[in-house]
Amino acid sequence: MLSPLQKANFYLNMFGFFKVPFIWLSRPKILRLDEQAVEIKIPLKRRTKNHLNSMYFGVLAVGADVAGGFMAMSKAQKRGEKISLAFKAVEGQFLKRPESDVHFVCHDGELIDEMLDETIATGERVNRAVKITAICPELHGNEAMAEFMLTLSLKRL
């Protein structure tokens, strides 16, 4: 039988393949998924790097998208709710060149729970900024390579 993390990775791969092919092409892998945090890894390979041999900024945006969105999708699914999820705004700070596999970490589980509670109770769209930090643990430990603020928009269907 598959572990919850294996199921989540399978779901992410199928979602990417059938709904958002660029996610599938980036090959994200969920390393951690719990009530408070999610950690996604995207490998630095030929299709994810730029001419400077660092991760292409579009792939960094994909990683931030997956880290911010997957936790919300997972929490809604656990509650048995159908939720419309989108990102309305993005702000990115690129601090260093990520020259190895990049991990995208989001610790906003509590904020996402509050957003879900509000949209389920009111039926209205709820918008809040979630923070995603990109790190390269192999080369730089927990030092941020990039930081993203994504405005997550949730609405109960």
Rank of each mutant, 00 (worst) to 15 (best):
E91S: 10
D101T: 03
I40E: 01
L152D: 07
L154E: 06
L85Y: 08
A61W: 04
M1K: 09
S84N: 15
F18M: 12
K19Q: 11
I120D: 07
Q6M: 08
L5E: 09
K131R: 14
Q36H: 13
P43R: 03
R79E: 15
G141N: 06
D34H: 05
A121I: 06
E114A: 13
S84A: 13
A89L: 02
M115V: 07
D65F: 15
M115G: 06
L116N: 10
F57N: 13
S100G: 15
C106K: 04
E99H: 02
A129P: 03
I42V: 10
F94Q: 13
R32E: 11
L116R: 11
K82Y: 07
L33R: 03
P98Y: 10
E91V: 02
W24P: 06
G63D: 13
V126W: 11
N127F: 00
E124N: 14
L2Q: 06
M71L: 13
T48R: 10
V102G: 03
A64T: 00
K7F: 08
I112K: 04
S26W: 01
E147Y: 00
A72H: 08
I83N: 01
R97M: 13
C106W: 02
V62Y: 13
L12R: 08
I30Y: 07
L2W: 04
T48W: 05
K88G: 14
R97H: 10
G92T: 08
D108A: 11
A72L: 09
F148R: 03
F94C: 11
R156A: 12
Q77P: 00
G69C: 11
W24D: 07
T122F: 08
V62T: 15
V90G: 08
M115Y: 09
F148K: 01
K96V: 03
F18A: 11
H107D: 13
S84Q: 14
A37D: 11
H107V: 02
G16C: 12
